[in-house]
Design a protein around this nucleic acid. Structure first.
Lengths: 128, 128
DNA sequence: AGTTTAGATTTACAATTGTAAATCTAAGGG
DNA sequence: CCCTTAGATTTACAATTGTAAATCTAAACT
């Protein structure tokens, strides 16, 4: 089955992240919970919700006078799709290069480093 | 100085990658060298070139009847900008999560694994 | 019941993007 | 010197996106 993940725009991602994190969510709630650095009017948020509805990324459930929204696409799948697209576009699909680039560029906590190393070691074990 | 990296669209990335890899490049050359799975007419490619010119991402140099294009923005910087944007949009800026996700999802060659591990070890050393 | 109003729905509108076709122009061929 | 033509430039056009305003509608208040 071809998992049909709709194309989610940058602004829509913001909305989807809210809904994934905490659903069902009303427009109201989403508006309240938006990160402080985002300044969208209510109308703007409702527009994005409608576009996500049209794209079948979320599904509404009537609740009193308003709707509660549930995700219809999975966070994991969307992340994977978006990651693939990014990887291909920017790094020609070369994961190694991409990783190296990130690692060199960014600082990580000791815990994060440990975790990554553990995953790598696991991967290596499985290989031989 | 605020390094002014223009927003480069998906199609434009394809062109920029060609120009970074091998410049100066004429429109002709770029068209020839495009990956086989991309089917753009000459006009389409020229449109993208013009848009990149307008965005000051490339710079032309007259050469006979045609132009040779040079990159005006650096590959590294563009990659970094694009990576940051992706990271923020999809993973809320959490590099660790992103990395973990990728690592779990993707297969790497032994060499790549080694290289990544080396980088991680380096990073750890520097920390204490 | 009539009025306000919160939320939903419709409409708007410019910028960007993907995808070119149409047209212009100068250089090379006859 | 005129014609062809390769490449450049201009124009096109629908879809998507960011950003809402305008309007509709049903519920809540008086």
């Amino acid at each position: 089955m071809i998992s049909n993940i709709p194309k989610i725009s940058e602004a829509e991602w913001e909305i989807m992240k809210m809904i994934w994190r905490d659903h069902p969510a009303t427009a109201e709630q989403i508006i309240e919970r938006l990160p402080a650095d985002i300044e969208w009017t209510e109308q703007t948020v409702r527009t994005f919700l409608n576009r996500l509805l049209k794209k079948k990324a979320i599904i509404p459930e009537k609740s009193g006078r308003s709707y509660r929204y549930f995700p219809l696409v999975q966070e994991d799948e969307c992340k994977r799709a978006e990651s693939e697209s990014f990887l291909k576009r920017v790094f020609n699909g070369a994961v190694g290069t991409m990783m190296t680039n990130f690692l060199e560029d960014v600082q990580l906590s000791n815990e994060e480093i440990d975790k990554l190393q553990k995953i790598l070691t696991e991967k290596q074990k499985k290989k031989q």
